[in-house]
Simulated assay, not measured.
Amino acid sequence: MPQTVVITGASAGIGRATARLYARRGANVLLIARGRAGLEAAAKEVESLGGHPLIQVADTADAAQLEAAAQAAEQTFGPIDVWINCAFTSVFAPFDEIAAAEYDRVTQVSYLGFVNGTRTALKRMLPRDAGTIVQVGSALGERSIPLQSAYCGAKHAINGFTSSLRTELLHRGSNVHVTIAQMPAVNTPQFSWVRSRLPQHPQPVPPIYQPEVAARGVVHAADHPRRKQYYIGATTVATIWANRLAPALLDRYLARTGFDSQQTDLWPPTGASNLFEPVDRTKDSDHGAHGVFDEQAHSSSLEAALSRHPAAAAAGLALGIAALATAWLHRHTRVS
């Protein structure tokens, strides 16, 4: 029987790439976003790849809209097996240049949207004592950077809220699982439609990964949800550990480099931002999964692959240690 999967933010970026992976499994996929053009294009992809799509235009900041979308999924497909919270929005600007209404909006979507999605999923999963929730997080949820205070705050909040929920589920002895997939810099369309007050075009802090790398991490987390969180990409691991080991040093480094590293030599985007309204409302305005950084983005991650296959990684490490030991013994035996 095919899985039934709900993906918020499914019209573009990581959500769109994740929907394609589930489609290849023949899954039932509920695609949620605000922009109809992106959703319709995503649904065509899901169907062409062997999946069964259903689209729902909804704003994750509105709990009632998510509840209606979940009801539609159940009526069409039956019980929901996996719920993936991925929708977000942001503002690139120094904190004192972000208006109160803008900050509220980022928090409503990028944090409370995850809370709303999780509540809607749990309403259905807890009575059945089955199901998995995946939060699409970020390395910026543990290590903040300049110019993205609203987004970083939301991602930090997701970590705290999810940890609290996890302990509650453990207390109940529940078979419902929740996990977080912490993302690196990803080449998504958001950098061309985000609200920005930077003098140049915003970019993810290099190195940049393609959304397919992120999507593979999300699906793996959903398949193996017992771990608290997954780190996708070596830069995510490096960022988190650098922050734990030398946070003050990292503060000074980011103060010196964090402004320039988030901007390209391109002119800033001239189109409308998606903060309050979707940019893919009209026909032929689909943006797909990829952003404008294809030439710089990596299509694979050794760290992410190893995290999906820990036994193979451990075996490889053991073989490597054995080879080094053999070489050392051989060398010193000859010398003696």
Rank of each mutant, 00 (worst) to 15 (best):
V136A: 03
R166D: 05
S48Q: 14
E40P: 03
D59G: 04
A242K: 03
V279S: 07
Q56T: 02
P2M: 08
F88C: 12
H52A: 07
L31T: 05
R227K: 15
A222P: 00
R216Y: 06
L30S: 04
T18Y: 04
H298M: 15
L319H: 14
A289W: 10
P225L: 07
L170A: 15
A312C: 02
A33H: 10
A130L: 05
K228T: 13
R226F: 03
A73T: 00
S307W: 11
T236L: 06
C86K: 01
L21S: 00
V292A: 11
L21V: 09
A64S: 08
H52E: 00
A37G: 00
E212H: 09
T167G: 04
A222H: 05
G13Q: 05
N187W: 02
Q262H: 13
L140H: 00
S174T: 08
D251M: 12
A238N: 08
V6R: 01
V134D: 10
A314Y: 13
S110H: 03
R25W: 00
E212W: 07
D265Y: 14
G137R: 12
Q3W: 14
F276G: 02
A323M: 12
E303P: 03
A318R: 11
W83Y: 13
E168C: 05
L49D: 06
V109I: 14
P184K: 13
R16S: 01
H287T: 08
R143H: 00
A27F: 10
T18I: 03
I14H: 05
A12S: 15
L21F: 10
D294G: 09
A304S: 15
A325C: 02
A100N: 09
T326P: 00
Q262E: 11
T162K: 11
E45N: 03
I158A: 02
V176F: 02
Q3M: 10
P199N: 02
A139M: 11
F293D: 02
P79M: 06
F191Y: 14
R197I: 09
T270D: 09
Q200V: 04
A222L: 06
E295C: 06
S149F: 01
Y22V: 07
V292L: 12
P184T: 09
H332T: 12
Q3R: 15
R16H: 14
V292I: 14
N85W: 11
L122P: 05
R172Y: 02
V136N: 04
D104C: 11
L302P: 00
Y111K: 00
Y253M: 09
A41H: 10
G217K: 09
D104Q: 11
H177W: 10
E97P: 04
T257A: 12
A42T: 10
D251S: 11
L254Y: 15
L39Q: 05
T326S: 13
T18F: 02
V106R: 03
G271T: 09
V335C: 04
L317E: 06
D96Q: 10
S174W: 04
H290A: 09
S336F: 12
S163W: 07
W267K: 14
L329Q: 11
Q148V: 14
N243S: 13
V218M: 05
A87Q: 09
I7Y: 10
Q262A: 12
A305R: 14
L147E: 01
F293E: 05
S336G: 05
A41L: 03
N175R: 15
A43M: 02
K123W: 00
P206D: 08
T270H: 09
A37T: 01
F276S: 01
Q190F: 15
D62N: 15
T107F: 12
P206F: 10
